[in-house]
Design a protein around this nucleic acid. Structure first.
Length: 271
DNA sequence: CACGATACCTGTAAGC
DNA sequence: TGCTTACAGGTATCGT
């Protein structure tokens, strides 16, 4: 996915064309993504005015003046497209605004989701209640991680992907944050030193902010709402760099599989 | 409960 | 060229 930085960039792009605008037309081009679209989505959204955009973890939020909030998740392959030239097989939800723009939620793999919540009840939504704090919110410190990791034998990399612990990190930024903190991703979470956890807590928001500043990452099917591409992928230290030299020590970046997913790290720097 | 494996779905690239 | 396989940013669910 779109991990947290890509969702943040998406939300900022959507705000440019949605903020203050009335949604004049809603078109559902299929009944579901991962789950069914809300049955009354079109009815509740049509004619509503967008009062603001937001983000919680990897979920994008579109608030309306009808006290509803559309919550979208981009899954692995979702993107919002603004004024696409053509509407294709994977454009599943279309919104047309009084500003003359047409937005399309495009998601080939359909791992994404769309929900419509009452804004005042949003914090009580089970999905939001179950996930951990925002990594950019300043709550994640070394000692906080130490507490959460106490007694945990799973690899630190796998726990960082658990949205109940830290919400918003995905495979790329976990690999990058662990590199910056010089932590071996295979290490049992409870056995990572306090000093390393402090470095990790510091690295997480920095790597995310760096990615946001670069405009999000560009993997093969991620395009920003304005059609531009992000360039952070060129700055990756380890992700996708198997066999290439470590930028810090010149050693060889390795790829291993953890939890069925690729982990990239430097076996020399990360201990 | 913690943990690992699997399923969901499509597109792309690599290997034969 | 065509077929098969592996892999891709995530998350829910199911065994053990």
């Amino acid at each position: 996915m779109p991990e947290l930085p890509e969702v943040e960039i998406t939300v900022r792009g959507l705000a440019q064309v949605l903020e203050g605008r009335r949604i004049e037309r809603v078109e559902l081009r299929r009944a579901d993504l991962r789950r069914a679209f809300p049955a009354d989505l079109g009815q509740r959204l049509t004619g509503a005015r967008v009062t603001g955009l937001g983000r919680r973890a990897k979920y994008g939020l579109i608030h309306t003046d009808r006290a509803d909030t559309l919550v979208f998740h981009l899954g692995m392959s979702g993107t919002w497209r603004i004024d696409p030239d053509e509407i294709g097989l994977h454009d599943h939800l279309l919104l047309e605004t009084d500003g003359g723009h047409r937005l399309s939620l495009n998601d080939p793999r359909r791992f994404g989701s769309v929900d419509l919540l009452r804004t005042e009840e949003m914090d009580d939504w089970p999905t939001f209640k179950a996930i951990g704090p925002e990594p950019l919110g300043g709550e994640i410190t070394g000692s906080w991680l130490h507490d959460r990791f106490a007694g945990r034998t799973a690899a630190v990399k796998l726990l960082l992907l658990d949205q109940r612990i830290v919400a918003g990190l995905g495979n790329i930024y976990v690999c990058e944050a662990l590199f910056r903190a010089r932590i071996d991703p295979r290490k049992a979470a409870a056995r990572v030193s306090r000093a390393k956890l402090a470095a990790l807590a510091a690295a997480i928001p920095v790597v995310l902010q760096d990615a946001i500043a670069a405009g999000g990452s560009s993997l093969r099917d991620f395009v920003q709402p304005d059609g531009g591409l992000g360039y952070f992928s060129a700055q990756y230290d380890v992700y996708g760099r198997e066999g290439q030299p470590c930028r810090a020590c010149g050693g060889c970046v390795r790829r291993i599989v953890q939890g069925g997913r690729s982990t990239f790290f430097c076996g020399t720097c990360q201990r």
